[in-house]
Protein backbone atom coordinates (compact mmCIF):
# COMPACT_ATOMS: atom_id res chain seq x y z
CA UNK A 1 0.00 0.00 0.00
CA UNK A 2 1.49 3.30 -1.06
CA UNK A 3 1.28 5.94 1.63
CA UNK A 4 0.40 9.24 -0.04
CA UNK A 5 0.09 11.35 3.04
CA UNK A 6 2.12 11.18 6.23
CA UNK A 7 0.29 8.16 7.60
CA UNK A 8 -3.26 7.02 8.18
CA UNK A 9 -5.34 7.07 11.29
CA UNK A 10 -8.42 5.52 9.74
CA UNK A 11 -7.21 2.39 7.99
CA UNK A 12 -5.25 1.21 5.02
CA UNK A 13 -7.18 3.15 2.40
CA UNK A 14 -7.66 6.38 4.27
CA UNK A 15 -4.99 8.22 2.34
CA UNK A 16 -6.56 7.25 -0.96
CA UNK A 17 -10.08 8.13 0.19
CA UNK A 18 -8.95 11.50 1.56
CA UNK A 19 -7.24 12.41 -1.70
CA UNK A 20 -10.25 11.21 -3.73
CA UNK A 21 -12.60 13.37 -1.67
CA UNK A 22 -10.31 16.38 -2.02
CA UNK A 23 -10.06 15.90 -5.79
CA UNK A 24 -13.84 15.50 -6.02
CA UNK A 25 -14.41 18.77 -4.18
CA UNK A 26 -11.91 20.61 -6.35
CA UNK A 27 -13.74 19.11 -9.33
CA UNK A 28 -16.99 20.49 -7.93
CA UNK A 29 -15.36 23.90 -7.61
CA UNK A 30 -14.35 23.82 -11.26
CA UNK A 31 -17.79 22.58 -12.31
CA UNK A 32 -19.57 25.26 -10.26
CA UNK A 33 -17.31 27.92 -11.73
CA UNK A 34 -17.80 26.83 -15.34
CA UNK A 35 -21.54 26.33 -14.90
CA UNK A 36 -21.94 29.73 -13.34
CA UNK A 37 -19.97 31.34 -16.15
CA UNK A 38 -22.09 29.51 -18.71
CA UNK A 39 -25.30 30.70 -17.10
CA UNK A 40 -24.15 34.32 -16.99
CA UNK A 41 -27.32 36.24 -16.14
CA UNK A 42 -29.70 34.05 -18.10
CA UNK A 43 -31.40 32.77 -14.94
CA UNK A 44 -31.85 36.19 -13.43
CA UNK A 45 -34.86 38.34 -14.35
CA UNK A 46 -34.21 41.47 -16.36
CA UNK A 47 -35.14 44.86 -15.02
CA UNK A 48 -38.76 45.20 -14.06
CA UNK A 49 -39.63 41.52 -13.85
CA UNK A 50 -39.32 41.18 -10.12
CA UNK A 51 -41.87 43.50 -8.73
CA UNK A 52 -43.18 43.68 -5.19
CA UNK A 53 -46.36 41.76 -4.57
CA UNK A 54 -49.28 43.67 -3.23
CA UNK A 55 -50.74 40.69 -1.41
CA UNK A 56 -48.44 38.84 0.98
CA UNK A 57 -51.12 36.17 1.61
CA UNK A 58 -51.21 35.31 -2.07
CA UNK A 59 -49.78 31.80 -2.51
CA UNK A 60 -48.68 32.79 -6.00
CA UNK A 61 -46.82 35.86 -4.79
CA UNK A 62 -43.28 35.97 -6.24
CA UNK A 63 -40.42 34.66 -4.17
CA UNK A 64 -38.18 37.25 -5.75
CA UNK A 65 -37.97 40.89 -4.95
CA UNK A 66 -35.82 43.35 -6.83
CA UNK A 67 -34.11 45.61 -4.33
CA UNK A 68 -33.32 48.51 -6.64
Amino acid sequence: MVIFLAHGALGVFDELIAITVAVAFFGMMVYAYIRSRALEDADLPPDGDATPSTDPQDPDSPDRFKLD
Binding site: A9, L10, A18, V21, A22, F25, F26, M28, M29, V30, A32, Y33, I34, R35, S36, R37, E40, D41
Partner: peptide
Protein backbone atom coordinates in the same frame (compact mmCIF):
# COMPACT_ATOMS: atom_id res chain seq x y z
CA UNK B 1 -19.56 37.39 -14.68
CA UNK B 2 -16.45 36.20 -12.85
CA UNK B 3 -17.82 37.60 -9.61
CA UNK B 4 -20.80 35.29 -9.51
CA UNK B 5 -18.65 32.36 -10.68
CA UNK B 6 -16.20 32.95 -7.84
CA UNK B 7 -19.03 32.94 -5.30
CA UNK B 8 -20.43 29.71 -6.77
CA UNK B 9 -17.10 27.90 -6.80
CA UNK B 10 -16.26 28.97 -3.26
CA UNK B 11 -19.07 26.87 -1.74
CA UNK B 12 -17.54 23.41 -2.40
CA UNK B 13 -14.08 24.83 -1.74
CA UNK B 14 -15.00 26.12 1.69
CA UNK B 15 -16.94 22.92 2.42
CA UNK B 16 -13.69 21.09 1.77
CA UNK B 17 -11.93 23.49 4.11
CA UNK B 18 -14.43 22.57 6.83
CA UNK B 19 -13.87 18.88 6.03
CA UNK B 20 -10.16 19.45 6.57
CA UNK B 21 -10.98 20.78 10.02
CA UNK B 22 -12.87 17.58 10.77
CA UNK B 23 -9.87 15.53 9.65
CA UNK B 24 -7.81 16.94 12.51
CA UNK B 25 -10.65 16.93 15.01
CA UNK B 26 -11.28 14.10 17.42
CA UNK B 27 -13.67 12.34 15.04
CA UNK B 28 -11.07 10.20 13.18
CA UNK B 29 -9.98 8.91 16.58
Amino acid sequence: GWVRAAWSASVPGLALGLAASSMISHAPG
